[in-house]
């Protein structure tokens, strides 16, 4: 019998704690597939965040260094500077990266640290129960924006992929989503490019992955995907904002 599809070796068979319909499982798999296709699994050191993906070390079979909320890029900097041959990635949510860790991500990117960042944007704080994040859409109801997010007190949704693309140290910045099969394949290709930038020693690479959070959005999984396609992608255009080859090429969906 010919095997045409199987679980990547470095994606463990642990039962995840993720909710039904959550995007993290797919994204974990894309990361594991990419790392194995690049043949660097023995050199990988993962930096999980605080939040739902804090348990990353249980699901991805790499050495890992878990630290404080938002500090992943600083920790990854310390690891990579000490071990330049290691392949280092941080895996962060939007509360972790865009809010409490805004300084660390900005400066790691600005130094052109040779690390890869997988940034999962689901527009809410997942682990703590669906509070508003810097990425929450205008008008979106969350447990801390019960009347819908409004500009006067909370500002605007933060577009991280575009923001970081302006920095010279960033050699790859893209936004993808995991809302359907075609986009999952595109997301995998972007993650590969972000790791290749590190492997070639070019600089910093980030992939912002739009993901659904059915539980905290109070939606059935299928409804959440539809909502994300309609609303999230409008606020957060998909595409590559920085590539090693060229300038910003924003391909909206």
């Amino acid at each position: 019998m010919k095997i045409v599809f199987e679980r990547p070796n470095t994606l463990t068979d642990a039962v995840t704690h993720y909710c039904p319909g959550c995007g993290h499982g797919v994204i974990h798999r894309l990361v594991a597939e990419t790392i194995e296709r690049l043949g660097v699994e023995d050199r990988v050191i993962a930096v999980p965040s605080i939040g739902c993906s804090g348990a990353l070390g249980r699901y991805l079979a790499y050495d890992s260094v878990a630290g404080a909320h938002g500090r992943g890029p600083a920790i990854a900097t310390g690891i990579k500077r000490a071990l330049p041959d290691a392949v280092v990635f941080s895996y962060q949510g939007d509360g972790d990266l865009a809010s409490i860790g805004a300084a660390e991500i900005l400066h790691a990117a600005n130094r052109g640290e040779q690390i890869t960042v997988i940034y999962v944007n689901n527009a809410v704080y997942g682990m703590t129960g669906g509070q508003m994040a810097p990425t929450t859409l205008l008008g979106q109801v969350t447990s801390t924006s019960p009347f819908g997010r409004e500009i006067s007190t909370t500002g605007w949704p933060m577009r991280v992929a575009e923001l970081l693309a302006t920095l010279p140290g960033v050699k790859y910045s893209a936004r993808v989503c995991v809302f359907d099969a075609a986009n999952v394949i595109k997301a995998g290709a972007a993650i590969r490019k972000a790791f290749e930038v590190q492997l070639k020693g070019l600089g910093f690479g980030i992939v912002e992955v739009l993901s659904q959070c059915p539980t905290n959005w109070r939606m059935a999984p299928r409804v959440s995907v539809k909502w994300a396609e309609e609303h999230m992608v409008r606020e957060y255009p998909l595409g590559e904002f920085k590539t090693p080859e060229g300038d910003s090429q924003c391909n909206t969906r």
Binding site: V47, A74, T77, G78, R81, A82, A103, E104
Partner: peptide, 14 residues
């Protein structure tokens, strides 16, 4: 200093 101590954390982990 927040970042500095976390860089120490990362390097010390190796």
């Amino acid at each position: 200093e927040v970042a500095a101590i976390n860089m120490v954390y990362g390097a010390a982990a190796t």
